[in-house]
Design a binder for these strands. Sequence first.
DNA 1: ACTATATTCAACCATATGGTTGAATATAAA
DNA 2: TTTATATTCAACCATATGGTTGAATATAGT
Lengths: 119, 119
Amino acid sequence: MVEYSSKLLDRTFGALADPTRRRILAQLAKGDECVTDLARPHAMSLAAVSKHLIVLEKAGLVKRRRKGRVHSLALEAKPMREAQAWIDRYREFWEGNLDQFEKYLGKLQKKENKHGNDK
Amino acid sequence: MVEYSSKLLDRTFGALADPTRRRILAQLAKGDECVTDLARPHAMSLAAVSKHLIVLEKAGLVKRRRKGRVHSLALEAKPMREAQAWIDRYREFWEGNLDQFEKYLGKLQKKENKHGNDK
DNA sequence: ACTATATTCAACCATATGGTTGAATATAAA
DNA sequence: TTTATATTCAACCATATGGTTGAATATAGT
């Protein structure tokens, strides 16, 4: 069962809306890395990258594991899966397979309303 | 060939990061609608919804067609397809099929750099 | 103990975002 | 022509975002 938390989708899509953060995800897709290594290829301060990592962390897209003074970042699957699910079902519906998505939207709407997490 | 414009992905994911806009897309998935009809179910001013529509339009996710004073909004496929492609390939890579995504990332990186549209 | 490294924190800045209200514009209907 | 409807525009507000720099904190190495 995929969970549909509006806030989680907000944060996930929001995190993906920045090229630096997409690139960080791409870096991590090749393997876990620490903050300094992640920051190196980006043309900005370490503190700026650190902030991007916090955004990714809040979206649940990466997980941090401290090893002494070094923070090792690793990808986390779930939020991306849910973002993908949203788009997949949206397209399934829109591009033809109507009934399924209509049901899905109903559920989503209810959840978003019920939890009052509409922004 | 999918096109990888960094700015387009920024705008697309950015547009999807708001629950009102996701709901508008859901409304439009059931069929074209005008601004007033789209606005009705949302607990905010018409002007606010109008602004959201402009965001969706700039992301290319909806297309506007004026019929006299009524603006009819319709979904547009391409940007959503590209957002989906990004996530799909990211996950393909990360969850096992390494070689393909590595190539893809190379191309993406080049495009994003070459066009200098990195924010 | 001292020094160097890894990371965040805090204050600051400029611009973006998401909302409001009231006026402007364009078209439709009387 | 007058009035009503559809939509945007403009000004404003509060908060968020993405960056900076310099200081603070924590751990490692000598």
